[in-house]
């Protein structure tokens, strides 16, 4: 059967976001943009980077995403995230390594309502003539700079939206919280990814080393984040340890 993650949870438990009341209703913005780069990564630590509930995809790859939200329950904000693409049972999902948001309100909102491991950073996402570019700084230091090269339009139906898994403390327990994003895409482009700079240690795990570029996408449209419906015990297979809220 598939191999399971062996992440040393106790080392991450202290830094895991502490949730309050989990999001019990969806919210939506009609002004969202997202630049996403996918890279296969060095698979030396493909098991050590994932909790036991998750399987590494074959091959293991990462999505590096910057998304702007024109509005939200806590106002407009930008989010930058690095996640590993995994499987929970036969479901696929992105396991968040770390993320930044650019307002204190959004950091608090995402950490407490979704268990998102978000810290404060300066995040810019700009559409240029030759393609979108994202830049993230923390304390004046660049932790991410990326862009899409030679963007070409594709159809929205070609794009697959993948759920997220956030390791967080829910009450006294560590849990993976499933987040469920969706888009109504108005415009989407596909191109080659250009990752000029990334500090994966700043994102939470220096072992995430992007190697083989896959694709870059840039989209505009409305974005919706669903209510939290599922919690997964990170220490057990998802087929055994999933709880519906």
């Amino acid at each position: 059967m598939p191999i399971y993650g062996t992440l040393a949870l106790e080392e991450y438990a202290g830094a895991a976001p502490v949730t309050g009341e989990l999001a019990n209703e969806e919210w939506e913005t009609d002004q969202a943009e997202a630049l996403t780069l996918s890279y296969e990564i060095d698979d030396t630590y493909r098991l050590e980077m994932l909790p036991a509930a998750l399987h590494p995809s074959i091959p293991l790859y990462a999505q590096i995403m910057v998304r702007s939200h024109g509005s939200s329950p806590v106002g407009a904000f930008n989010l930058a995230e690095v996640r590993l693409m995994t499987r929970a049972g036969s479901h696929y999902g992105g396991y968040t390594i770390g993320a930044f948001a650019n307002t204190t309100e959004s950091v608090e909102f995402l950490r407490t309502r979704y268990g998102w491991a978000v810290s404060l950073g300066d995040i810019a996402l700009n559409q240029r003539h030759f393609g979108a570019r994202a830049h993230v700084e923390v304390d004046g230091r660049c932790v991410l700079d990326m862009s899409i090269v030679h963007p070409q339009p594709i159809t929205p139906g070609d794009f697959l939206v993948i759920a997220g898994f956030h390791l967080a403390r829910v009450g006294s327990d560590l849990r993976l919280i499933q987040s469920e994003p969706s888009y109504e895409i108005e415009m989407i482009q596909r191109g080659k990814p250009r990752l000029t700079s990334i500090d994966t240690e700043a994102f939470g795990d220096v072992r995430v080393r992007p190697q083989n570029p896959i694709v870059a996408t840039y989209l505009k449209g409305s974005f919706k984040l669903g209510r939290v419906r599922y919690l997964i015990d990170p220490t057990r297979p998802a087929t055994e340890g999933t709880e519906q809220i």
Binding site: S57, I154, D158, L160, I214, V215, Y230, A238, T239, E240
Partner: peptide, 30 residues
Amino acid sequence: VSAREAYPSRSYASFGLLPQARRQATAPGE
């Protein structure tokens, strides 16, 4: 990793190997 998952392309409109099973699985525990 299906082509459809990793690389958005009209060339791969379906998952290929597992469409039926994927349609029916709705929660991580299923």
